[in-house]
Design a protein around this nucleic acid. Structure first.
Lengths: 350, 350
DNA sequence: CTGAAAGCGCTTACAG
DNA sequence: CTGAAAGCGCTTACAG
C-alpha cells in the first residue's frame, strides 16, 4: 500500500513510461482514459495503471492545464488571502460574492473562466504566502485581515497585479473599507441611552478595522462624556473568548452600564456573561456591536449594531477586483462602506 | 484606460514582444523585475511595461508555475468542493483543518507544498465543476453538501483521484460522516424530558446529512411515542428562514412542546420565534439541535445539541484525504463521527 | 496497436 | 545590453 517512489523527485509520466517500458504518449493516454479510442492493448493499460499506482503518481496540474489548451488560455486565478487567526466570516462573504459576480459575467458573455484559491498566513507574516511577490500563483488577489506589519510589507512591496485590500487603507492599492467612524455611532447610541460607565470589548488579532472600531469609540466617548472607557481584551475574537473575558471582568467586581463589542460574535459571548452575572440587557447593561454576522436581530434581546453590511462589503470588493482586472477602474480606487446604525432592543430601542 | 486587446485571444508574452518589437525573453525579464540584473535598457523596460498595460496582459499562471521549476514539482492542488446553497460552516472547518494538517506535515519534513482551491456548484449540478472528471484542475478533493443527484453522478463516474466525501456514503469512495442516528438521540432527549407533541425543523437543500438527521428523529419518535411529528420546512437552512418558518407555524395556531432543529443556526432562528410567540424555553418548548457552530452553549438558554463535532469532522476529512494521497489508507475507508449528545438548559438540564 | 514529435506559455541559462 | 534556444510536464495530432 505504500508509495514506492523513494527519493527520485516527483513521479512523472516519463518515469512511469521508463518503468513500464512504454512511451509517455501511451502512458498519458491510459491515464486520461483515452485508451479505448487509441486502441491500446489491455496488457499495456494494466501495466500503466499498476505502475502509476505503485509509484503514487500525481499529475502536475499546471502542466495539464497548460497543455489542455483553450480552457487554460482564459483562466484567471483569483486568490482570497487572509490571516488564519481571523474569523472566516468575511472570507465567506467574499467567496460567495465571487461566485455571484462570476456567474453574472459569464451570462454577459465573458470569455474568462475563474479559479479561486484560498491562501492563509500567520497574522504578521503575509510575506510567507507563496507566489505573492512574483505573481506566480494567481492573477489577482483580495487581501484581508492584515495586521500593521502586513500593511508595511504591502507598502514596501507593491504587488505587480490587481489587488483589493479589504478593511485597510495602504497607499498604492485599491481598498474597500468600513467607514472608520463606526465606533463613534456606537458611542452615540450608548450615550444617547443615558449610559455613563462604558466599556469596549475587543481582542486579537488587532487588524486595522478592529483598531478603528475601538479607537473611534473611545475618542467619541471621551468627547461626549469626558470619562475613561474600560478596555476588556479577549484572547481571540471568538464568541467563547469574549464570554470568558467578560466573566473575568465581572468577577473583578467591576460594573458598567454600556458595552460596545467590536464584533457581534463577541457580543453573543458578552450576552452570555452578562446574564450569568445576573444582569439584564438593556436595563443593567446596554449592548451595541459592529456587525459581521447576519443574524444579530435574532439575539435575545435583538442586538443593536453599527457596522457596514458584510455581504455588501464582500460584493463590493469582488466588483472592484474584477473592474481592476478588466481595467475599468483605477488601481487607486477607494470604496468606503457606510455604517448602518441599527438601534435595537439591546440599547432600549424597539 | 480600457483594455486594447480585441478579439485576438488572450495576450501572451509573445504578443507583447511582437507589439513592442522585442524578444519574449526581454519581455519576460522585465515583467518579472529581472531587468536590473539583465541590464535591460530603460527604454525597453518602459516599452514593455507600457505595452503590457495597454494590452491588459495577464500571465498564464499554469505556465508560470510549470516553468518555475522545483516548486511546481511538489505542488499538490487540493479542492474543497461544495454546493453554494449550503452554509459554509463545514467548509470553514475543512479549510482550517487543511491549514493545520499541512503545517504539521511540513514540520515533519514533507517535500510537498499544498494549494487549496474552492469550487462551488449549484446543488444537483456537481458535474459542472471544471476538471472534475478529467482531474485536470486538482490532485485530490473533499466534496461536501451534495444532493442525491450529485451522489448518483459520483457513483456513475468514479473520479480518478483521491476523494473524500463528507456526510454522504457513496460506493467506491472514502467517507467521513456523522453517525446517522443523531436524530434518534435528539428524540430521546425530548421524550425523556416528557415531551409529547414534537416537531422537526429543517429546510433546503436536503443533503444526505439533513435527511439522516430528520428521518432518524422521526423514526425514533414514532417508535417511542407512536405519535406523528410536525415537519416545519424552512426555505433555506439560514437562521432567518428558520425564524420565519417557525413564526408561520405558530401563526397557524399549532402548538408543540418539543422541537428538534437540524442545525443550531436554525435553532437560533427558532429561539427567536418561540420567544416572540410568548413561549418560554424549555418550559413551553424544549429545543435540541444538531450542531454546526461552536457556540450553542452561549445561546439563551444554552442549547442542547446532538451532532458530531464539526471541527473534528473537518480535521478527520483532511487527515483521510492526505492519507489517501500518500497511500497510507485505502480508498474505501469510512470514518464515522460519533454523535456527542450534550443535554443543556434548552431541554431542562443543567 | 504504438512511437516520435510538436507545442501549450513561460523563464532562464547561454551566447553574443 | 539583447537574441535565440532549451525545456518545465503534459496531451494530442500524426505517422507508421
Amino acid at each position: 500500500m505504500t508509495n514506492e517512489n523513494t527519493g527520485k523527485g516527483r513521479v512523472t509520466v516519463r518515469r512511469i513510461a521508463e518503468e513500464a517500458g512504454l512511451t509517455i504518449g501511451s502512458v498519458s493516454s491510459v491515464l486520461n482514459n483515452k485508451h479505448v479510442e487509441r486502441r491500446i492493448s489491455p496488457a499495456t493499460v494494466a501495466k500503466v495503471r499498476e505502475t502509476a499506482a505503485r509509484l503514487g503518481y500525481m499529475p502536475n496540474i499546471n502542466a495539464r492545464r497548460l497543455r489542455s489548451g483553450s480552457e487554460s488560455l482564459n483562466t484567471v486565478t483569483l486568490a482570497v488571502i487572509t490571516s488564519y487567526e481571523a474569523p472566516l466570516t468575511l472570507v465567506n462573504n467574499i467567496i460567495k460574492a465571487i461566485r455571484t459576480s462570476v456567474d453574472q459575467e459569464r451570462k454577459e458573455g465573458s470569455p474568462y473562466h475563474y479559479t479561486v484559491t484560498i491562501e492563509m498566513f500567520p497574522a504578521g507574516d503575509l510575506g510567507s504566502v507563496p507566489g505573492l511577490l512574483a505573481g506566480s500563483h494567481f492573477n489577482a488577489a483580495i487581501i484581508t485581515n492584515t495586521t500593521p506589519k502586513d500593511d508595511h510589507f504591502l507598502q514596501r512591496n507593491q504587488l505587480p497585479y490587481p489587488v483589493v485590500l479589504v478593511n485597510r487603507a495602504t497607499p498604492g492599492y485599491a481598498h474597500v473599507y468600513e467607514e472608520p467612524e463606526i465606533g463613534a455611532s456606537a458611542a452615540d447610541m450608548l450615550v444617547d441611552a443615558g449610559r455613563k460607565r462604558l466599556a469596549v470589548l475587543h481582542g486579537s488579532p488587532v487588524t486595522q478595522v478592529i483598531d478603528n472600531r475601538t479607537s473611534s469609540f473611545m475618542r467619541q466617548v471621551s468627547e461626549r462624556l469626558g470619562a475613561p472607557v474600560h478596555e476588556i481584551v479577549a484572547g481571540t475574537l471568538t464568541e467563547s473568548a469574549a464570554a470568558e473575558a467578560m466573566a473575568r471582568f465581572f468577577d473583578g467586581g467591576k460594573r458598567i452600564d454600556g458595552l460596545y463589542a467590536v464584533t457581534d460574535g463577541m457580543a453573543l459571548g458578552a450576552y452570555h456573561a452578562i446574564k450569568q452575572a445576573g444582569l439584564t440587557i438593556p436595563d443593567d447593561v446596554a449592548v451595541v456591536a459592529a456587525g459581521d454576522y447576519n443574524f444579530s436581530s435574532l439575539f435575545d434581546p435583538p442586538l443593536a449594531t453599527v457596522g457596514a453590511d458584510p455581504r455588501e462589503q464582500g460584493a463590493e470588493a469582488v466588483r472592484l477586483l474584477l473592474d481592476l482586472i478588466h481595467q475599468r477602474r483605477s488601481r487607486k480606487t477607494d470604496v468606503v462602506m457606510p455604517g448602518n446604525p441599527s438601534p435595537r432592543a439591546s440599547v432600549g430601542q424597539a
